[in-house]
Design a protein around this nucleic acid. Sequence first.
DNA 1: TGAAAAAGTAATGTCAGACATTTAAAGTTT
DNA 2: AAACTTTAAATGTCTGACATTACTTTTTCA
Lengths: 246, 246
Amino acid sequence: MKSNLAPTADLSAQIAANIRDAIVSGALIVDERLPSEAELSLKFDVSRATVREALKRLAAQSLIRTQRGATGGAFVNRISFEAAQAQQITTSTLLLSMNDVSFETACEARYALERACAPLSAERRKQHHINAMRDEIKVQGEADLTDEAFCASDVAFHRALVDGAGNPVLSYQLAGAVEAMQPLMNMITFTARSRDAIIALHITIADAIEAKDGAAASAGLTALETETQALARRVFAQRSGNSDHV
Amino acid sequence: MKSNLAPTADLSAQIAANIRDAIVSGALIVDERLPSEAELSLKFDVSRATVREALKRLAAQSLIRTQRGATGGAFVNRISFEAAQAQQITTSTLLLSMNDVSFETACEARYALERACAPLSAERRKQHHINAMRDEIKVQGEADLTDEAFCASDVAFHRALVDGAGNPVLSYQLAGAVEAMQPLMNMITFTARSRDAIIALHITIADAIEAKDGAAASAGLTALETETQALARRVFAQRSGNSDHV
DNA sequence: TGAAAAAGTAATGTCAGACATTTAAAGTTT
DNA sequence: AAACTTTAAATGTCTGACATTACTTTTTCA
């Protein structure tokens, strides 16, 4: 009953796949202790070093955690939204930067996903979500803000919007998508004028969410997408014109 | 300039974080070869075994690949949409199953995200997307289909819908969300009557996409979500009533 | 008696060195 | 020039040892 995958892969990869299957299938449950490294090396008939490499692979995916000491060992990890999100962000960020995904494509995906949250957020947002959005809008208006700080505040604004939907699965998915785009967003120079336009739309969106008007919020997001795409086009056009200065 | 994270973590985790940062920041570019294990063990002043554990961690995240032989070594991996998706599915599936995420919450997130694709898909879908949807609808009508096969066809249908948007980033995000829900969907028993209702809505949606009517497609998805949620409530209510039979 | 200190123990973390295997390149022979 | 052989460099694996950690048990002594 060997794994049908990767019959020629490394032993450590095979063992990791074996244990991973046991976790995913539910044969190993959360907080259950795996056999010790010595026992696993007997069971799989490999050295302890090989077992350890397999366990490190699983640890990298947050599938297990290890504890030292007499009662220590490897335990099936209850993966948290936070940990899952961190991994997704790393993966998505690299995916975008390594595969020549255009700003346009990534931006479109991001706003499409955000629009999915808008009606739910308009319906369910709590006051603290509104407050968070207003706070970020205020930050975005500060004169001496760097582009990076502006982007970070932008992410925080949108995060509050998404969290307003009160659906942790949605928040998890969206946070990954939004944060993964940040490196791309950071390539953009935000002039005072373009910041004003973005802030105005943020106010429109926050107002719509506060008024529980999902359609207006969606429309605001569409306008924001249009504005962002136009801004990006201007920046990239200027760059390619001055490419010898880079 | 050590990593500000995890000063007390394992050496192999620290080294993995160090190299990961170099990849994410772009200091190491795609297909670039890392120093050999022996060189890394000198550079970080640890044993080769520790270096190997660090490299296995990175390999588990598809950040590097290794090749044996004279010109072999560890190379920065160009992470593919496919690999990223596979990882995301594993992570999301576990996240949902381990954290007692209700069917309702997951289902809501899934359909919200899909509605985000509907307008784009209606606008841009090619004929082969329509054909794929029609094919799956036909499969779903087969009388002797198991619940698992019905679910699998359902996923394929929705995947064609999402792919119709022609945005790989969107497809990647959505495929993860939809596939991660499959174990939850598989818990449901699809009676002949409920299958008919679902198929009818699939036809409505496919028609709307073919007619390039995004609003109608969104409405169809909303109706499908309502139907699915109602079905799930019926199944779970019946289960809890007969819980002694389990 | 009871609490603090010490010893025991079982697990992971790390190291050193060896050998096996794979792969490409260099060298040799025909 | 083509085919074969050798070499070299890298990863893959094994063995055994020691270090470190943290819980458990025992001992000590007030």
